[in-house]
Structures are given as C-alpha cells and as structure tokens.
Amino acid sequence: MSWALPAVDALAARLLEDRLVDAVLGWARDPDLPWQRYPHRVDEPSRVGELVWDPFCAPGLAKLVFRMTEGGLKLGVLARGCDALGVWRLIHDRRIARENVYLLGLPCPGMADGVRVWEECPEAFDAAGWEDHGSHWVAVPTGIRLPKERFLLDKCLQCQVRWPRQCDEVLAVQGGSWNPFCEDRYRQVRQLEELPLPQRFDFWRGWFERCLRCFACRQVCPACNCESCSLDQFEPNWLEREVGVATQFIFHFTRALHVAGRCVDCGECQRACPVGFPLGALNRKMMKDMEDLFGVREPFVPQESEPLGEFALDDPDEFR
C-alpha cells in the first residue's frame, strides 16, 4: 500500500463536489525549493491534484484555518493529529466555528526535516510517492530509504498524536502508528528541573540573549489567538519595548503562562523560531505541572475548560 495521495485527492474532490466545504486546505510543493511544502488551499475539485501528502509537509495548518474561516468560509482541512488538536484549541476558544471546518484526519508517520534530506540525499525528492515502513520512509519507485532516526523533524520526535483525534473522518492511509521516539515527553523538563537553580537561570539567560522577540512563536501558535496580544499593548505596558534579560524573562514567562493548560504540543513555535529557542521546554513544563498539580490527563488535548480557569477545593498548597 502506498502512502495514498490519490485517496486524499479523491476525498478532497468529493467534499468540494458535494459542496460540503468551500475549499480544502492542505500542502503543495514549492516551485523553487524542492524540500519545501507550504500550506495550500484549493477551491475547485479539478485542482485537488495540486495538493501533496509526503514526508515533507512540515507546516502546521491550525492557525491558518483560523484566519481562513473568519469570514465564514467552510473549510476542509487535511489534519494530522497536531493540526486537529490545534483546530480544536481554536474551536474551544471560540475562534473557529465548529460548523465551518471539516476535519479530514490523516494518520501521520512523522515528518522529515526537508533541509537535512536535501543536504544529505537530494535524490529522495525525485520520488513519485512514499511508503511508511515504520522506522523508514521509502520512496516509490526509486526505493530510497530515509531512516526516521536520522531525519525526523524535531517537533515530531515527541509526538503522541500521530493518530488524528476528534476528526470528522479519518482517511485510511498509512501512518498513525505508535511513535517509538517518544519515550518520555518530559525528559528535557526533568533535566532542567534537576539543574541547580543558578544553572537553570543561565540556561534560559543564554536563550534570552539569542531571542529576537520576533514573535514568530506567537504567530504560528494555535493557542495564541487573541484579538489583541497583551504583549503588544502600550497601555497597560505589560512588556516594555526595551530588550534585556528582565524583559525577555517577562516575555517568555507570560507566553508560557498564557498557553499553560492550553498548548496542544504541536511544536510549531519551536519550528518557527529562527534561533531555535527551546519553547517546547517551557510549554511541556506547564503541561507537566498541570498533570502533577491538578491531575490533568493528556494536558495537550484541548478541553472546553482550562485547568487555570478552574479550581479544586483540595488543590495543593505548597507555599509554606
């Protein structure tokens, strides 16, 4: 069985023909950069061939769904686990109307780091199609094998939602299996927690020095969907414009707290960051605390209620 791009196309076409949706959002090739796939929307059944589904579809779609459906457009979304959770984050935040999206679940085999593949094995991009062999992606018909251990995208390493959840329909394509690379999502968090406090600060301080405060992490994040970001406001000036350790601290502290209990762990923030700031280590810390302190199971799955908008009478009281 191949990776079944035709099945994806067929379903997308059917949705458009049946007018269940006005458009379908997926990915397309970049005409100039062979390793790049960018989000792409097709409005006509005849154009579903423009969509692509291969190991290089790195970008998350959820945040785009938000912008595209704002005007009432009904959108079919090719949704991997991370995309679906992101869309649900936006639905629970009342930023996407449930009836405006049709989630076409794509079981995901994990995505490859296109740049690295291009550097090490450019001929892989000649493939006509792909198969998922668990530990490898295999190109058809060339038979080139790409080991996931070497090429998996950082954000896919710790993924626990390869199987798309809460979708309207799940496509019977390869992928969606258990992720062998994800043994302990909180490993990095634990490592940091175990460092002595001054070294912990030094770790973050090093990253504060690199952070450009370009806000790319916020722009791609499905949980950062406010009409007006408090960090942009002048009155009150939650965050001063001056860039220093203290203000960088406040920026990252506020961002982490605002997504606490809401982050879907799609890893888009860190992927989008031009300096590679370990935003995931902040997000997962919040997740871990939601689990440890409030017993939230699977804190990355969006719920109608948020842990920080709730309380329990027997919440821990560890301030003594």
């Binding site: 935040d93 009342r94 930023r95 969907n225 406010c226 009409e227 007006s228 406001q233 948020e306 908008g309």
Partner: peptide, 9 residues
Amino acid sequence: EHWCSGCLR
C-alpha cells in the same frame, strides 16, 4: 470590545 476575542473565559 476592540481587544476582546470573545472566548468568554
């Protein structure tokens, strides 16, 4: 209202 996202949290 200008800033409100309508999430109703």
